[in-house]
């Protein structure tokens, strides 16, 4: 085993082979991962591009796409939590979505787990690829000037990624930096002997606790942990059991993986084909009509992977 080169999320090949984008992406991730960080003793988190890690185990960390903080805030009023979730600034579990409506009814929901870092590196190295990608994902109307400011700086909150559509995260703490950073946190756990001792854990999201606690139990076993390659935030599963059409029969498969691959989905769309005489907003989940994107997000499973093992001498 040797140190690794960080690959793109889901092994995306948006840029042509040989593009400087790929080396730039590796450098971007390596910049975000610390070489060695002590976690719950005695193990630690390491940068696998620097530390030669003999991988023994791989762990899939899963959490729910809908905001746990909103559910806790509106503990007795779930509709209020869903209503509040339509604002992307509170879509905090590393899943953001854009709802398309026609005459008030939801016709399509687009979910993404793509990070702003990826698009910033594309903008810096392959601006035409960036533009082509935006045009494919959102609208042929996109212009490069909409995406890149003076001096070539990428504009993550451009209109095609906010009011008019969605390409990647804009919520301030949804990012590759935050996912990797939380994975290196040690909050209350340095001397913990089990997962009860770090309580109360301060972060309220399901994702952050999952990323941290799962690393801590592994480092307490004396293992070193590192981001799986390719690092990323992935949709790993979704569950439409008990969802029904207007006639009460079970829904068909209306999901489309628009970017990524099985187990590493980056962009997921939910839309009823035009051949049907109803739309997403006519579907009921457990007998309740879909009125917000959050009601669908609640049934999407997010994930990040970690590898664990021993550092080679």
């Amino acid at each position: 085993m040797a140190t690794i080169t960080f690959d793109t999320p889901a092994h995306l090949r948006d840029a042509p082979a040989g593009s400087p984008f790929y080396a730039a992406w590796h450098r971007e991730i390596a910049r975000l991962v610390n070489d060695r960080v002590p976690l719950s003793r005695p193990g630690r988190s390491v940068d696998p591009s620097v530390v030669d890690l003999e991988v023994d185990e791989e762990r899939l960390k899963t959490w729910t796409g809908f905001s746990r903080p909103l559910l806790m805030e509106h503990r007795d009023d779930r509709p209020a939590a869903f209503a509040a979730s339509e604002d992307r600034s509170v879509q905090i579990e590393y899943l953001e979505w854009h709802v398309t409506r026609t005459d008030g009814a939801i016709t399509k929901i687009t979910f993404t787990t793509e990070t702003p870092e990826y698009y910033a590196v594309l903008a810096a190295t392959e601006p035409q690829v960036l533009l082509d990608l935006y045009r494919r994902l959102v609208s042929p109307q996109v212009q490069l000037a909409d995406l890149v400011g003076a001096g070539g700086t990428y504009k993550p909150r451009n209109k095609w990624n906010t009011t008019l559509g969605i390409v990647h995260y804009i919520m301030p703490i949804n990012s590759m930096k935050d996912m990797l950073g939380v994975s290196e946190e040690i909050q209350n756990a340095a001397d913990a002997r089990d997962n009860f001792e770090p309580l109360p854990y301060q972060r309220m999201t399901g994702a952050d606790a999952r990323l941290s606690f799962d690393n801590w139990v592994m480092t307490r076993r004396g293992l070193s942990v590192a981001p799986w390659n390719p690092p990323g935030l992935y949709i790993v599963d979704w569950d439409d059991t008990g969802w029904t059409k207007p006639d009460g029969t079970p829904v068909d498969d209306y999901w489309t993986v628009a970017r990524g691959a099985e187990g590493m989905v980056l962009r997921l769309e939910y839309e009823v084909p035009a051949t049907e005489d109803f739309v997403v907003g006519d579907i009921a989940i457990g007998g309740r009509p879909i009125t917000t994107g959050g009601e669908v997000a609640e049934h999407i499973v997010l994930s990040a992977r970690t590898v664990a093992g021993r550092e080679s001498p």
């Binding site: 999952r210 139990v217 499973v301």
Partner: peptide
């Protein structure tokens, strides 16, 4: 941690993960 003794799918581990982190966070 890795379910080598008691599988993660085992009934008592599914319905009460005890000290484990879950999809909704800390224990």
């Amino acid at each position: 941690v890795f379910g080598r003794l008691c599988p993660h799918a085992a009934h008592i581990r599914k319905v009460n993960p005890r000290d484990s982190a879950t999809d909704f966070g800390a224990p």
